[in-house]
Design a protein around this nucleic acid. Structure first.
Lengths: 242, 242
DNA sequence: TTATCAATTTGATACAGATCATAGGACATA
DNA sequence: TATGTCCTATGATCTGTATCAAATTGATAA
């Protein structure tokens, strides 16, 4: 069962798309070996959130470490007057909650119904001690994350609205392909507002650019929040600044 | 000798601000223990670059890993038509050159005259094997870097020109304070163009906002590329959208 | 000293995207 | 069936920043 099907099938299915196994997300991501997985399973707490509920809040004390096992969440930072920057979206097997000082540096909110594995910070740290190789892979994942952030800075700082939307669609398509799924159609469960807050546009401009790409025949909007990329190469060309 | 003095004293001093020791940057950053430092010293190559010279180029094969020991460099990504996004600035003790696949994901260019320690990738990887704790600290540094990137996304995506410039100045001041130096004045060796490409503005708008802050009595421009923060608290308030 | 070149500043104007306003559709609840 | 809420789409207008242009300053070299 893929993430699309999980969401399309409604709340119950979306909350736990993989049945009884709370650590499926861990297995899926290929990061863990059997003994590590077993050790993790002993200290895990299963958690669920519905659409728009928050999981952690920026500034709160960081007591927990999470892994997404079903659904999609947004990672966001807020300014005092309500302006919001989404710094990323989390999918099954993604983790979050590592805090530098004792507090979370961002909030995490459920974009769809969401299921998670929660680990108490102390017990997680003890586990890292037992399995030092975990850290090696965490560094690899952090490096990937860092490279993605830098790419996103280029999008936010230097691309036009049209290029931003094309970048967003190309990125999701590429991600889908990397996971061994078809690069199109892609599942876009987040709202135009969420996307706008991710790529630095308003809801209205984001909507207008989607419409523009649709009228040009570059994308098609399908039911169930699916978007078909009718000309992925051209979208990539637009995303890269023509 | 601090970084300001190194630059102010001219090219020769700037290239090697600490005399004969090529690994001073490593010692300074507090990341290494004596035996690790000793092992590193054996495989290090000293490298220098002058103002505006490039160190690595986005897309090149990643054969080397670097640590800055003197001067300042910019990390940047380019679009085909020349648009540039500076994703960060590097100071003594900062490292770069870790590539996910085999190629660099960004270019690094000297902002001032620059001295570096270069390590061949293979030998560096062998060292990591010998000193696993190195990896623990690299993860810590990568986490910090990631948090900084997310903060920068908020700046790029959601702040006004005025807030962007105030954020930039506050950040440098805070960094200076964290390193145990006075929070003002701060050394700004990069041009208005470099700063603009970092915070997502043009040279002209960046210059205008500096002028505006100066006329409001919030900053003063001193000789030798020093900027005094006359009201750090108010600048921070502006930066935070207050 | 004068010439050269890069960086900064300032002014005038243009425009991409924000803001404000409205309407329709999907979906949940009463 | 009615009612409310959220999301998307789209039109009209406004504005912050980009763009284009030119003068000024400062550093380096001849």
């Amino acid at each position: 069962m893929n993430e699309n099907a999980a969401a399309a099938a409604g709340p119950t299915a979306a909350i736990n798309p993989c049945g009884a196994c709370p650590v499926r997300g861990l297995a899926v991501c290929g990061v863990l070996e059997p003994d590590e997985l077993h050790a993790l399973a002993e200290i895990v707490h299963e958690v669920q959130r519905v659409h728009r509920q928050s999981v952690i809040v920026e500034g709160d004390e960081a007591h927990n470490f999470f892994i997404v096992t079903g659904g999609v969440a947004s990672v966001e930072k807020l300014l005092a007057d309500g302006r919001r920057q989404v710094v990323g979206f989390l999918y099954p097997s993604d983790f979050f909650g590592l805090a530098i000082d004792g507090c979370y540096a961002y909030s995490v909110t459920a974009v769809t119904n969401l299921s998670l594995c929660r680990f108490e910070r102390q017990r997680y740290l003890a586990l890292i001690d037992r399995f030092p190789k975990l850290e090696h892979r965490l560094l690899g994942m952090a490096s990937n994350e860092l490279a993605a952030s830098q790419e996103q800075m280029l999008v936010l700082g230097r691309k036009t609205a049209r290029e931003k939307v094309a970048s967003f669609l190309s990125m999701l398509s590429e991600r889908s392909r990397r996971l061994g799924r078809p690069p199109s159609p892609v599942w876009i469960p987040m709202t135009r507002g969420d996307i706008g807050d991710y790529i630095g546009l308003t809801t209205e401009t984001t909507s207008r650019k989607f419409t523009q790409l649709r009228k040009e025949g570059l994308i098609a909007v399908l039911p169930d929040a699916m978007i078909e990329l009718l000309d992925p190469a051209e979208l990539k060309r637009i995303a890269d600044g023509g």
